[in-house]
Design a protein around this nucleic acid. Structure first.
Length: 436
DNA sequence: TCTGGGGTCCTAGGACCC
DNA sequence: TCTGGGGTCCTAGGACCC
């Protein structure tokens, strides 16, 4: 048995904890660059605001409907997530943190009334962190996701499902006939792993509800689509195919990519940007104790704007596997110089580190004596460790390599964040003060 | 006239997730 | 004027091997 614990409208809920005046109002949290809505309160959803709706298209609702928009505050959400996950872990013996606002909990060996236990954990999360959650339980992860979706919908839209399924729903405890009714009332596109593309193909084949998909022959799913959909069908039928990953391995690729606040056409700022992205990626790389052997740099113009489009990328092999910010930044800058073409308004660029390997198996090499070609690796890693320490303690970018330029006003490429809230829980100066 | 069979590895692209 | 960022997995097809 698995449970899926999921924070409702997570980013908006985090903001509301520290600004209760936002309760009951339509609120959205915007993506980087204040580009589009990535989290919506129920009131905002009721206004018809879709996921990823561009801000400039919904902005008029500020005036007409009292919509409040906030810039994303990922430091806050990350910290609130940690708190929520710690409490969710109390539900069972094992936990997989699946995303910033969701975790699967293994329920094997847990005795007693699961729903009662779930309600207790839900109450505790709400009381201790202020985040409302829903919990779905079932014999497989796909069914637990589905149960969670139903628990949420039952809470948000009265009448959609029986009221007792709201907030905490154990799918395994439902009588067979009632379960069929619930699956019949649920769209096939709401299944985890069935996206827009496949759900359209399924609908063309007459498979419209979750009940239809549950009754599909797994072999048909494999022949017509892929082994992924076959697993989904089996999971819906109650046969576990996707394991709980309570100890996820290191990431296979690490990216840092950004849209710019405004289009950039000059080489200089583009080099500065990708050098900085490479430095950020390097920090992440060192955190998971890995080395990169290749680095991919890319940039492109805005597909939404008319005019000539340009999209380029280049893979830069690194001389040796490295986690050194200076080497990564230089490779990114070299890649940018190589692929740059003048005459285009670039709106986005990024660096992706691929082909990662554990730092522990580093291949040593013969030092042929050229101090420029073979810098003392040990000194370099101490420099990186010192940089990471200083930046952790005194804030991002306190020390940085010369090539990335001074963080601040004269960077034409930095993103827009006009409505960011304070780091209430992670920065001493931002901690709210209670006055008697 | 007529040109095998079996396998691995890599990559690009597609689909999905939140 | 203005449209996010960071991941994973699967598959098909090509290159190459003997």
């Amino acid at each position: 048995m698995y449970a899926l614990v999921d924070g409702n409208n997570f980013y908006v809920s985090c903001e509301r904890v520290f600004r209760p005046s936002l309760n009951g109002r339509p609120v959205v949290v915007l993506s980087n660059n204040d580009g589009c809505a990535i989290s919506r309160s129920n009131e905002a959803k009721d206004l018809g605001i879709k996921m990823a709706a561009p801000w400039f298209k919904i902005r008029h609702l500020e005036e007409s409907a009292g919509l409040v928009a906030l810039s994303a505050n990922f430091v806050l959400y990350g910290d609130m997530s940690d708190r929520m996950m710690t409490l969710a872990a109390g539900l069972g013996p094992t936990q997989e943190i699946y995303s910033i606002d969701e975790s699967f909990v293994g329920l094997h060996g847990v005795r007693g009334d699961l729903v009662a236990r779930g309600r207790k954990v839900r109450e505790r999360i709400l009381q201790w962190t202020g985040i409302p959650t829903c919990i779905g339980m079932a014999p497989t992860k796909t069914l637990a996701k589905l149960a969670n979706h139903i628990a949420k919908t039952a809470e948000r839209k009265p009448g959609s499902y029986p009221r007792e399924l709201a907030q905490v729903f154990n799918l395994a405890a439902l009588p067979a006939q009632d379960l069929d009714d619930v699956l019949l009332a649920t769209d096939v596109g709401d299944v985890w792993g069935v996206g827009p593309r496949i759900s359209e193909q399924l609908r063309e084949g007459g498979i419209r509800t979750v009940l239809d998909l549950t009754r599909m022959d797994p072999a048909t799913a494999r022949r017509g689509w892929s082994v992924t959909l076959e697993k989904t069908v089996r999971e819906l039928q109650g046969q576990p195919c996707i394991d709980l990953e309570d100890a996820p391995g290191p990431k296979q690729q690490i990216a840092c990519t950004r849209s710019f606040g405004k289009p950039v056409h000059q080489l200089g700022p583009l080099i500065e940007a990708v050098s900085e992205f490479a430095a950020r990626a390097g920090e992440k790389l060192r955190k998971q104790n890995c080395l990169a052997t290749e680095l991919l740099v890319f940039m492109h113009t805005s597909p939404y704007r008319p005019g000539p489009q340009c999209s380029r990328s280049v893979v830069v092999p690194l001389r040796r596997p490295t986690d050194d910010t200076l080497a990564l930044s230089k490779a990114a800058a070299d890649g940018m110089r190589f692929m740059y073409v003048a005459g285009y308004q670039f709106i986005k660029a990024g660096v992706i580190l691929v082909d990662l390997q554990p730092a522990s198996v580093q291949q040593r090499e013969l030092d042929l004596g050229d101090p420029n070609e073979a810098p003392a690796t040990r000194d370099r890693s101490r420099l990186m460790a010192a940089m990471d320490l200083i930046n952790t303690r005194f804030g991002k970018g306190t020390v940085h390599s010369g090539g990335t330029g001074k963080p601040g006003a004269n960077r034409v490429w930095t993103m827009k964040q006009e409505r960011r809230t304070p780091a209430y829980t992670t920065c001493l100066a931002d901690v709210p003060v209670a006055r008697a």
